[in-house]
Design a protein around this nucleic acid. Sequence first.
DNA 1: ATTTAAACTTGCCTTATGTCAAGAAATACT
DNA 2: AGTATTTCTTGACATAAGGCAAGTTTAAAT
Lengths: 193, 193
Amino acid sequence: MSETHFLTKVFSNSDLTKDELDVIIPKFHQISYKKNSYLLSQGEIANYYWFVESGFIRSFVLDTEGDDITTNFYSTGDIVIDWASFFLRKPTREHIQALTDCVCWRLDFDTFQQLFHSIKNFREQGRTTLVGSYFGLKRYSISMIADQAKDRYLRLIEEKPHIIQNVSLKHIATYLGITDTSLSRIRKEIASE
Amino acid sequence: MSETHFLTKVFSNSDLTKDELDVIIPKFHQISYKKNSYLLSQGEIANYYWFVESGFIRSFVLDTEGDDITTNFYSTGDIVIDWASFFLRKPTREHIQALTDCVCWRLDFDTFQQLFHSIKNFREQGRTTLVGSYFGLKRYSISMIADQAKDRYLRLIEEKPHIIQNVSLKHIATYLGITDTSLSRIRKEIASE
DNA sequence: ATTTAAACTTGCCTTATGTCAAGAAATACT
DNA sequence: AGTATTTCTTGACATAAGGCAAGTTTAAAT
C-alpha cells in the first residue's frame, strides 16, 4: 500500500520500466531549501541536479554592470540543472535560488554517470530532457528577437501562469529582457483592454 | 600512407580511441551542397546531422510576419544539427541553407543510435557537443538582453571573424536581432573610431 | 561587356523601451 | 499593531533601434 513516489510522475512519459525506476528513483535524495537560499552559486561546479516537488526557483546571471538577469523559472515537476557546469565539470556562471520554501529531489554526478551508461532508457530519457531544454531556450531567444515585449509577456502568462502569480515583477521583467518600469506599463496597457 | 580523415580532427578532443574512430568515421558519408541549396527545410524531420568540411551554412526560421531570422552560422569543423528535430523525431521549424558551395559529412539517425548505445565514448562525446551547443545558445540569449547591438556586433567580429567576411549583412543583422539598416549605421560608427 | 538584381549606405522621422525620481501599495520585521 | 523595506506604479524626458525610401556600390546573369 505504498504511496506512489513523486518521481514516478516525472518519469511517466519515458520508456523506463517499473524495474528500471526501482533502481533509479532510490538514487535521488530529498532536500529542502528555505526561501532565498541558494541551490548553486556562481563559481561552483554543479555536482547535482534537482527535480522540484514543490516551490518556486529561479536561475540568474550577473551582467557586466552587476545587474541580475533571470534566465529561468522552475516549479513543480521541472528539472533544475546547469547543463554546462554539470556535464562539462566547470564553474557555473549562474546562481540558482529558491524564491519560496522548496522541496526537491537531487542526484549527484557520479551516480548519474553510472545510471547513464548502464541503463539505455535512462540515457534516452536524459537526452530527451536536454534536447527539450535546448528547444525551450531556442524558442525563448527567437522570441527575444521577433516579438515585442508585450507579446513576450502575454505568452509567458499563457505558458506559465503560475509564475506570474508567484514571482516579483522585477524578476519577470529581466527574464523578458525589459525593465520593471516597462513591464508595469505593459501591464497597465493590458489591464485597460 | 593514407591521408588522415577530416573527421579525425573533429573528434580529436574526445576520448575516442583509434579503434573506436575506425568504427565511427566510416559511418559518415560525404555530401556536397551547392550554394543556396537546403540541407533541411521547415516541416521535415531531420534524419541527418552534418560536420562541415568546407563552406558556410546558416540556419534560420520565419517569424510571424514571414521575415527570416538567422539562428546560427556554421563553418569548417562545426556540427550542423537541429537537435530537437533529430532527437525528438518531429518536424523542424528551421531551414538550413548553404551560403556557399559546401562539403559535409553526414550521419543518419539510426546509425547514430546504434553508435550512441554501443560506444560509451561516443555518447560522452555527443553529450558534450550538445551541452556545448546549449551553452553557446545561452550566452547568445543573455547577450541579447544584456548587451547593446554594437557590443553584440563587436563580439561577433571577435569570436567569428570568418563569418563577417563571408556572410551578407542582412543575415548578420537578423542574427544580432537588428535590421540591416541599424547594422550599417553601427559599422559606420565603428569605422570612424 | 552590359544589364539586372542584390547588397549596402544614408537621411528623415517614428516608436519601443530605458532612465531617473517620486509616490503608493504591499510585505516583512520586531 | 506599527514601522521599515521592498515592490509596484506613474510622470517627464532621453536614447536605441526601427520604418521607409532614395541613392550607391557590388555581385550575378546573360
